[in-house]
């Protein structure tokens, strides 16, 4: 009986969580040329979901950056910019606190690439270990510290 409930629960969970609300909200935007949602992607052994949004043009890209509150500067010292977002796309800062502790419940990590006109969001960053792994991945890939 417990197994039957588990099966039903998983089926409901699958249906409910198949696409993030952020992906659903932004994939239909006029500014977005292509949207992709990768579920269960693994980065350095850490399982995350990823949304990629390719803007139609540079104007649309800048509009997305502004809307998602990603500070844009071609001379930004840190390669990769990280903010926290709720999955519905409403920005809410969740940067590490001064004591180094991170509150990541429901948070996302977001970055942007002007060369690709792309905004990418890592979802389901549930805990500090995952947060650090993804930060390390981005810093390593982008040639940063």
């Amino acid at each position: 009986m417990r197994q039957a409930f588990l099966l039903v629960f998983m089926a409901v969970g699958l249906l409910a969580s198949a696409q993030s609300s952020f992906y659903r909200n932004y994939s239909t935007r006029r500014e977005v040329e292509t949207a992709v949602y990768i579920k269960n992607h693994r980065i350095d052994g850490v399982k995350v979901d990823v949304t990629l949004l390719r803007a139609r043009d540079r104007q649309a890209f800048l509009k997305l950056l502004a809307e998602l509150q990603i500070p844009y500067s071609p001379y930004h010292p840190a390669r990769g910019v990280f903010l926290g977002l709720r999955d519905d796309g409403n920005p809410r800062l969740k940067l590490p606190a001064a004591d180094g502790k991170v509150s990541l419940r429901g948070a996302c990590l977001i970055g942007a690439s002007e060369a690709e006109l792309t905004v990418y969001v890592f979802h389901r960053v549930k805990n500090e270990a995952r947060f650090r792994r993804i930060v390390q991945y981005v810093m390593r890939m982008s040639g940063g510290g």
Binding site: S73, H76, S113, E114, A115, V138, M141, S142
Partner: peptide, 10 residues
């Protein structure tokens, strides 16, 4: 696409 985007991050 993700790897390319991360590599050329802002």
């Amino acid at each position: 696409w993700l790897d390319n985007a991360v590599e050329t991050a802002l």
